[in-house]
Structures are given as C-alpha cells and as structure tokens.
Amino acid sequence: MKFGIMITEGPYQHEASDSAYQFTKAALAKGHEILRVFFYQDGVLNSTKLMEPQADDRHIQKQWSALATENGIEFIVCVAAAKRRGINDTVTADGFKIGGLGMLTELAIEADRVVEFRA
C-alpha cells in the first residue's frame, strides 16, 4: 500500500515523532511504500541538524535522516511552519527538504492511507 505520514509535533517534548518513526519503520519492513513524510506545525523542528541530545538518548533527527536516505523516502518540511520557527535549508539535516503545504494535499490525493501523529 501507499502510505503517507504527517507529524505535527516536535521532538522530545512529546512521543509523537517517536511513534511516527516506529510506525514508518514497521510499514517499510512490511513492504509498504512511504510516499512522503510531511513535517508540519511544531513537527518541522524534527528536521534541524543543530539538535544535540544527550549521548545516552536517541537522536531523533539522525534516526529520521537515516530512514530517509537508506530508503529513498521524501521528507517534506512545511515551508510556512518552518519559517515561523526559524527553520530553513541552512539548518535542515540530510533527507529533509523544505516544501509547500500543497504537498500535503498531493499526499492525501495519492496515498491509500495518511496517518497523522500529533500531540
């Protein structure tokens, strides 16, 4: 099946990004196609390479980046949400691209399922 994922919550504050990551990994393992992961609202904060968590915890951005590059998944960071929160393409990590909200509509048109992970 063609899946889309939407994340509207930032890293560490809430489990939403972790849940979305685990779900996406499990969907890939089951052979599903992930058309796009859309990072929206505070979810755009998952994309910053300036993130420096403590060494004994998971690195949320690096986890996501590895998933994108190893599987060729498109990660879109909503441009308007990003600008509001000080995120632009000088801080986004590997695998994340800035894109318009229309790409969420396109995902809804194209995907068999869009799963939302939120606070």
């Binding site: 509207t8 929206y40 609202q41 308007a80 909200l101 229309g102 969420l104 509509t105 809804a108 048109i109």
Partner: peptide
Amino acid sequence: SIYAFEGLENVLIMAAYDQ
C-alpha cells in the same frame, strides 16, 4: 493552539487542487 488556523490553511490549499 494553532490547529484551527492550520486547518483553514489546508482547506484553502486543497481548494486550489480542484478536488
């Protein structure tokens, strides 16, 4: 919270896609 605002943004964007 920002959710209602973003909902409205989506409505307007979706409208541009003729769905």
